[in-house]
Design a protein around this nucleic acid. Structure first.
Lengths: 345, 345
DNA sequence: CCATTATCTGACAACGTTGTCAACCTCGCG
DNA sequence: CGCGAGGTTGACAACGTTGTCAGATAATGG
């Protein structure tokens, strides 16, 4: 009924405590016979090792930490917009951790904070995780990654190339934007507006490049007037769309750098009596909102849960093998075609 | 650079290890003088106590577990619908935990599983949390709650009354449905359709009652033909809506038992060329999708993050004071009025 | 058949913290 | 002035596991 420890199992199986430990951790050099006896006792008693004690005794903690930007995350929550990114991370990382007997803990730290290092170190000291998953913009913070590497904490960086510093797990934003734009060109669109994202994110800049790539390789000119700045917020999407639709020769299609701004475009168009897909619309991120909107938005799907799963896998691998050689992992994106894109009239 | 332990702090401050411990835990009977010396050393060294060691030595783990239904959660993820419930839980519980120096870990267990108890006990053994937050349907599982209580694990139950067994943190679904219905009646609607939820959930049954309450108190008759069964899925929402709209004297408004089914109603209406709010629509849950749909849906907002925050608070309170006297906590819901409801033409 | 090695098993310390208890100090009171 | 009560501090064991190392046993080769 009460707590059952490794000692109880050892006693029941008539072996040393250390032998039980060996069996539980799949270590070699245990005869089949003893293994069976131990496993039988484990099942009978319902023994499960205590994470805390494992951490204390051994060198592993069976814990990963996912570090997210505090401000951004909380703003998403407060706005009622929800936080699809975190949800997807949970999806991928949690299931992967579960499969390996690990756990994942979310932590929020403000990216701009001047004592960022201190806060991160506090988390490391308290939890002593076997690895840490960085999401943007933390994943782009080279100084942070260097600090973690110095402290021998395995790092997986989401959404960016690792470039020899930790693991990089990312998709090709440039090619994704290119493919989205090509989709529109294929539908006969020639004047395609682009709503940019905040340029401080690598991904934003790449998306813009990809947009230009597609135009150029189709022999179209890149008209700067068709590129409107945005910062990923709904409001900035509204402003950008109004600007684009006010052009004398207005675009017949718009590519937005994220869902939020694309939905803003949808609202603005609807308010102006412009139907979608009379104005074709493509977005980035494929969050739940754009599948449920009317019409559903054609969108680039980021493989967030796959990236998180891979990140967790890599870190768990380090914890098991001790090999933390940096590597980069490009994951495929998807273009989900829905009702918001159609042939130009 | 390296790990700094309580011993280092004790040495630096010239006090006993136990004194540092006392200061860190805000225990009484430490002179101001020593307190300051210790805190100075703590700051200088950047000391943060190790969770694992705290758990080992003491009786608290500074850890809460949130138990969710595995199947439901994973289905939501797989379907690409996202998991607003979990996201909101994170929002409320994580911030509360953070404020108290606690952490929260999500765990998934299949509600229907025949060795549910075993799985839950395994989680308890591994993590030894200071409390556990149950979400539906786990929170409605009386046997489970009883087992946990027997094992002295403080329990907070989301979405249901505690009724003397653990903490109950919930909203009044019946009154919420009543208010939503009254809103429609106030707009002049008399024939109001209702899309029910799966009756195995307490909340579903209560919502239906509330719907009937409002009709009756307005002097309207409850027409069974206007009540269509559903099971919270989009598909069931489609079927239910088609059934309601096929009625000879079709409803001018529909109240759906969740967002998913309401969005289905929106789709069906749009397909049939019926505009919303010509057909007025109200939903339950107020997930991000219904704010972004066109038009935005009037919806009952469940205070999920507030409930989660309260649940965490209660459990942390138990861990601090030792008092686990059961109590119930009714939290207010909100009726978010958007473009999907309008006066009857 | 012995010497040597490889395989297997167990005893024991260590991890970093808190609970317990005893010692000491300082008051206030008789 | 002595004594008890209460406040303050510290020494030490304990928590449940794994790392280390030494001892026992089995396999291998001469």
């Amino acid at each position: 009924m009460s707590k059952v420890t490794i000692r109880h199992v050892a006693e029941a199986a008539g072996v040393a405590v250390k032998t039980v430990s060996r069996v539980m951790n799949g270590e070699p050099n245990v005869t089949r016979d003893l293994q069976d006896r131990v496993m039988k006792a484990v099942d009978a008693l319902g023994y499960v090792p205590s994470m805390a004690a494992r951490r204390m005794g051994g060198s592993r903690s069976f814990l990963l930490v996912a570090l997210n930007d505090r401000l951004n995350t909380i703003n998403n929550w407060r706005s009622g917009r929800g936080n699809d990114w975190i949800d997807q991370m949970l999806h991928g990382a949690m299931l992967t951790c579960e499969a390996h007997g690990y756990r994942m803990l979310f932590e929020l730290v403000e990216a701009g904070s001047d004592d960022l290092d201190r806060k991160v170190v506090a988390i490391l000291s308290a939890l002593q995780p076997d690895g840490i998953i960085l999401t943007p913009p933390h994943s782009e913070n080279r100084a942070l990654v260097e600090m973690l590497t110095r402290r021998q904490v395995p790092v997986a960086r989401m959404g960016v190339r690792g470039e020899g510093l930790g693991f990089g797990v990312f998709m090709d934003d440039r090619r994704a934007a290119e493919e989205a734009t090509r989709h529109l060109i294929g539908l006969g669109h020639a004047r395609i507006g682009f709503i940019a994202g905040s340029p401080r994110f690598q991904a934003s800049r790449q998306r813009r490049e990809g947009y230009a790539d597609a135009l150029r390789s189709a022999g179209l000119t890149v008209d700067e007037a068709l590129i409107a700045p945005g910062d990923f917020t709904f409001e900035s999407g509204v402003a950008a769309t109004e600007r684009l639709l006010a052009l004398p020769d207005r675009p017949t299609a718009i590519l937005a750098s994220n869902d939020e701004m694309a939905l803003a475009a949808l609202h603005v168009a609807s308010r102006r009596g412009i139907g979608v897909p009379d104005l074709s619309l493509v977005s980035f991120d494929d969050t739940p909102g754009v599948r449920l909107s009317v019409p559903g938005l054609t969108s680039i799907r980021q493989p967030i849960s796959d990236m998180a799963a891979r990140a967790a896998e890599l870190l768990i691998g380090v914890s098991k093998t001790g090999d933390a050689t940096p590597s980069d992992h490009l994951l495929p994106f998807g273009l989900e075609i829905r009702g918001s894109t159609a042939a130009r009239q």
